[in-house]
Amino acid sequence: YITMIKAILIINNHGKARLTKFYDHVSQDKQQQIIRDIFLLVSKRSDRACNFVEGEDIYDSDTKIVYKPFATLYFIFIVDSSESELSIIDLIQSFVETLDKCFENVCELHLIFNIDKVHYILDEMVMGGLLLETNSQIVVSNYQQQNKLEKTENPLLAGFQGVMQTIKH
């Protein structure tokens, strides 16, 4: 059985999309409408409600919305209606843990200033709507190797990151 993910969204608690990844062709206007509708749906749900919604025709009739709030962000996966909600919740948890390991306690600013790296991490886990990897250690290792490669190809970047580490501490 192949996991089919139709879209992945990270939206802050003010409704601002911080990451959007649609695996089907969806027009820009339709994407914006989907983001607004899903935010309105998940943001008004009780903390005690389950973390998935079926029967809403926001994306299309054959989908369900699985989400998990973390701090000021909603991590939202739009998946086939036949998909296991628990497996998607686990995938969201794994994605967040991987981001935490790569950015040392990920926050909204990490997503804003490192969106290319966030997309790289996501692409290591999900490609074309299909699940590739859920082991965060493997994804973190690939991410670190990619960072080393970037630093060797661009010594200015390595120097800049060193300065940022010094300022941070």
Rank of each mutant, 00 (worst) to 15 (best):
99 L>F: 02
123 D>N: 15
68 K>F: 03
53 V>H: 00
108 E>C: 07
90 D>H: 12
67 Y>C: 03
91 L>P: 01
79 V>N: 13
127 M>G: 04
121 I>D: 04
41 L>G: 01
48 R>P: 00
66 V>G: 07
114 N>R: 08
101 K>D: 13
129 G>I: 04
47 D>S: 10
99 L>E: 00
74 Y>L: 04
98 T>S: 14
107 C>R: 12
93 Q>K: 12
108 E>V: 12
116 D>F: 08
109 L>G: 05
119 H>K: 08
53 V>R: 01
126 V>I: 15
117 K>M: 05
59 Y>Q: 05
71 A>K: 12
93 Q>H: 13
130 L>P: 00
75 F>G: 03
108 E>H: 04
130 L>I: 13
105 N>G: 06
53 V>M: 04
124 E>M: 11
40 L>C: 10
92 I>N: 00
74 Y>C: 11
58 I>S: 03
42 V>K: 07
99 L>Q: 05
61 S>A: 08
73 L>R: 01
50 C>W: 01
79 V>P: 09
97 E>P: 00
110 H>K: 05
44 K>E: 13
124 E>F: 01
54 E>P: 00
46 S>V: 01
97 E>N: 15
124 E>G: 13
57 D>N: 15
127 M>W: 07
131 L>R: 09
72 T>D: 14
121 I>M: 03
100 D>M: 04
43 S>E: 12
92 I>K: 03
109 L>E: 10
49 A>M: 09
95 F>A: 11
100 D>L: 05
58 I>M: 11
89 I>V: 13
104 E>R: 12
113 F>A: 05
41 L>T: 14
62 D>A: 08
51 N>C: 12
90 D>K: 12
50 C>A: 11
111 L>E: 10
92 I>C: 02
127 M>A: 08
98 T>D: 02
48 R>T: 15
65 I>L: 09
89 I>F: 00
93 Q>V: 10
53 V>I: 15
83 E>M: 10
82 S>D: 13
94 S>Q: 14
49 A>G: 04
62 D>M: 10
114 N>Y: 12
109 L>M: 14
66 V>Y: 00
79 V>Y: 05
129 G>S: 06
103 F>S: 09
126 V>E: 03
72 T>M: 02
42 V>M: 04
57 D>I: 09
123 D>Y: 03
69 P>G: 01
55 G>H: 05
66 V>L: 05
46 S>G: 10
51 N>V: 01
53 V>G: 04
58 I>W: 06
125 M>F: 02
63 T>R: 02
44 K>V: 11
68 K>H: 15
117 K>D: 15
47 D>A: 13
105 N>A: 12
106 V>E: 01
117 K>T: 04
82 S>N: 14
55 G>N: 10
76 I>V: 15
85 E>F: 01
60 D>N: 15
56 E>V: 14
